[in-house]
């Protein structure tokens, strides 16, 4: 076992990892697939539905895996996706 995970951190009860809230503006998506391809945690996937522009927008598969890097919102050419941090009270429930 590596040295760093032998001991439990003292503040593990207090510190909560940030949770993400992914917002998709589906009708702005043109289906280029950059957000799906370049997500480091593979949170997104192509969906079955067809939006107003006739393409398959992404769907969120596993929002809990998101690490809030916001690369999807930085690489989106159409301003159709953005990530906000969930408020801490919501995660406690």
């Amino acid at each position: 076992m590596p040295e760093r995970i032998k001991h439990v951190p003292l503040d593990i009860e207090k510190v909560k990892p940030p949770r993400a809230e992914i917002h998709l503006i589906k009708n702005q998506c043109k289906g280029c697939g950059y957000c799906i391809e370049f997500c480091p945690k593979k949170v997104l996937e192509e969906s079955e539905e067809i939006n107003a522009r006739g393409v398959h927008p992404p769907k969120i598969v596993n929002e809990d895996k998101c690490i809030l890097c916001s690369f999807c919102s930085a690489v989106c050419p159409d301003f159709a996706i953005f990530v906000l941090e969930k408020k801490q009270e919501e995660t406690k429930k």
């Binding site: 043109k30 280029c32 393409v55 989106c76 050419p77």
Partner: peptide, 10 residues
């Protein structure tokens, strides 16, 4: 779709 100009603007 896939054009880089949107990314430059972003």
């Amino acid at each position: 779709a896939g054009c880089g100009n949107g990314i430059v603007l972003n």
